[in-house]
């Protein structure tokens, strides 16, 4: 018996749609489940059994998080470091990209290799730690943004984009007597918005999501230098340490003494949502840009 091509196609499409729905569920469910727990009454959440919808709706978990002094500091630090790193990083990377995109630049080859090498040669954790110590960056807010402004991959992506711009732009600016820096800043940069959006997204995601810098370089001044992701990590490892107790069902709201009317499960879920939402609100709007950016980076990198 032979199935007609049309029917075979329809079967294929149906199976594929089911598969895609499965993918959507796998990707979204853990997040939506956490969202539901963060919106559910904290003591009720301990009973378990919450899936996609809160059982007893409340906003008090968010209330108690934003009353917590440490978490407010963490939030402020995360925002500050992300803004500083993104603005500074975009400036340095695009200026470097501009110089490397000028075909006539005499040291172009040497400088490109000089920068590309940093992608492969890294000194490692311990020598870096000692360097930061000598620069007194340990337990200093500047450790969050100063060392990480340059990114060789970002420079290559920006340079490749700039090489695709018409030469006449730069030449026209030069005939008008504009300096190189003005040409870069006022002529080239404004038309690079797509690639700047991509690289800016990468830099800000990397900074917003980083907890390790706090852990290694700033944890002894946690009360002033902590970040949101670090606090989430701390809550997470606390609840892991309690894993044994959790299984015997003997979980009391002991880990959350600093919070009012809440439980570790609820606190964890709520911080997770607060830490995730800013990025999740931004990235879909930049999708068409970063999809191109990945392509450029992989071909020319």
């Amino acid at each position: 018996m032979k199935i007609s091509t049309k029917t075979a196609n329809r079967i294929f499409d149906t199976c594929n749609t089911i598969f895609m729905l499965f993918i959507i569920v796998i990707m979204l469910y853990p997040f939506l489940n956490t969202l539901a727990i963060s919106l559910n009454n904290a003591t009720d959440s301990i009973k378990g059994g919450i899936y996609l919808w809160p059982r007893i709706f409340t906003l008090s978990n968010y209330g108690s998080i934003f009353e917590n002094e440490l978490l407010l500091t963490a939030f402020r630090n995360s925002v500050a470091r992300t803004v500083l790193s993104t603005v500074g990083g975009l400036f340095i990377c695009s200026m470097t990209g501009y110089v490397l995109s000028r075909q006539e630049f005499i040291a172009r080859k040497f400088v490109t290799i000089y920068f590309l090498m940093t992608m492969y040669v890294s000194a490692g954790l311990i020598p870096t730690y000692f360097l930061y110590r000598d620069l007194s960056l340990i337990n200093n807010f500047h450790v969050y943004w100063l060392p990480g402004l340059f990114g060789a991959f970002n420079v290559i992506v920006i340079r490749t984009y700039m090489q695709g711009l018409p030469d006449s732009l730069v030449e026209a600016a030069r005939i008008d007597g504009a300096s190189e820096f003005r040409t870069f800043f006022q002529v080239v940069l404004p038309i690079c918005k797509p690639v700047l959006a991509t690289v800016g997204l990468w830099i800000s995601v990397g900074n917003w999501n980083d907890w390790f810098t706090t852990y290694i370089y700033a944890s002894s001044r946690r009360s002033t230098l902590t970040t949101l992701q670090y606090e989430l990590m701390a809550v997470l490892s606390e609840s892991m340490a309690q894993m044994g107790q959790q299984q015997s069902g003997a979980i009391a709201a002991q880990g959350a003494a600093a919070f009012n009317n809440t439980s570790p499960i609820a606190i964890r879920a709520t911080i997770t949502i607060v830490a995730a939402v800013p990025i999740l609100l931004v990235y879909p709007f930049l999708q068409k840009y970063f999809v191109k950016g990945v392509h450029v980076g992989s071909v020319k990198g």
């Binding site: 993918i23 979204l28 853990p30 997040f31 990590m233 997470l236 995730a276 990235y283």
Partner: peptide, 20 residues
């Protein structure tokens, strides 16, 4: 768009979601 989402979450968040 949905399949890109986990890429933008930090490993801390991912670890919390995965262990749940």
């Amino acid at each position: 768009t949905i399949s890109y989402m986990p890429h933008f979450l930090s490993w801390v968040i991912a670890a919390a979601l995965i262990s749940d």
